[in-house]
Amino acid sequence: MTTTRGSAPRVGGATYRPRLTGKERRTTARDLARDYERGATIRGLVAEYRMSYGTVRLLLLEEGVQLRGRGGRVTRD
């Protein structure tokens, strides 16, 4: 296992963050919810916060955020 300055340990090329608990978890969830409600996508938040898609989605749901639909092309009748 190797580490780089200012980052979490790297194992096999993947970066792992320590588990979020307590106040840090609530603060991160609030920040994610704020950014998502301002228009950020889950994938954009994944890149910005360096977390997995599943973790970002779970934290948004814990904050009571109503997730947007997948988007894409809308057809008209």
Rank of each mutant, 00 (worst) to 15 (best):
R17L: 14
S7F: 12
A40S: 09
L20S: 02
R25K: 10
D35H: 08
M1T: 13
E63Y: 04
A14M: 15
R10K: 10
K23R: 14
Y49H: 10
T28F: 08
R5P: 03
T55M: 07
P9G: 10
T4P: 00
Y53P: 05
A33L: 08
A47Q: 06
L60Q: 00
L58N: 15
M51I: 03
P18T: 12
L61K: 13
G69N: 02
L58Q: 15
R34D: 11
G64T: 04
M1K: 14
G64F: 02
V46A: 04
L60F: 01
R68M: 04
T27E: 15
R30C: 02
T2Q: 15
E48Q: 13
T55K: 02
Q66F: 06
E48S: 12
R34T: 10
L60I: 01
R34Q: 11
Y49K: 07
A14H: 15
E24K: 14
G13Q: 14
R26N: 00
Q66P: 05
M1V: 13
A29Y: 04
G6C: 05
I42S: 06
G71W: 08
R70G: 05
G54I: 07
L67T: 06
T41F: 06
K23L: 13
S52Q: 00
Y16K: 14
V74W: 02
G71P: 01
I42D: 04
I42K: 11
Y53R: 06
R25H: 02
G54L: 10
E62F: 00
E62W: 02
T55F: 00
Q66V: 06
A47S: 03
L59C: 04
R43M: 05
L67E: 06
T2N: 15
S52T: 08
G6R: 13
Y16T: 14
G22Y: 08
V65L: 05
R26C: 02
L32Q: 01
V56F: 07
R73H: 13
R43G: 03
V56S: 08
E62T: 00
K23M: 10
A40P: 01
L61I: 11
R73Q: 14
D77K: 12
Y16I: 15
R38K: 10
L58P: 00
T28I: 09
R57V: 00
R10L: 09
R70T: 02
M51G: 04
T2C: 13
T41R: 12
T41C: 08
Y16M: 14
R68D: 07
R70H: 03
G6N: 13
T2E: 15
Y49V: 02
L20K: 08
P9D: 11
R5I: 07
R50Y: 02
V65S: 06
D31L: 13
R73K: 13
G72R: 09
D31M: 13
T41G: 13
R5K: 08
G64Y: 00
T28R: 11
E63A: 11
G71S: 10
D35I: 04
T28C: 12
V46T: 03
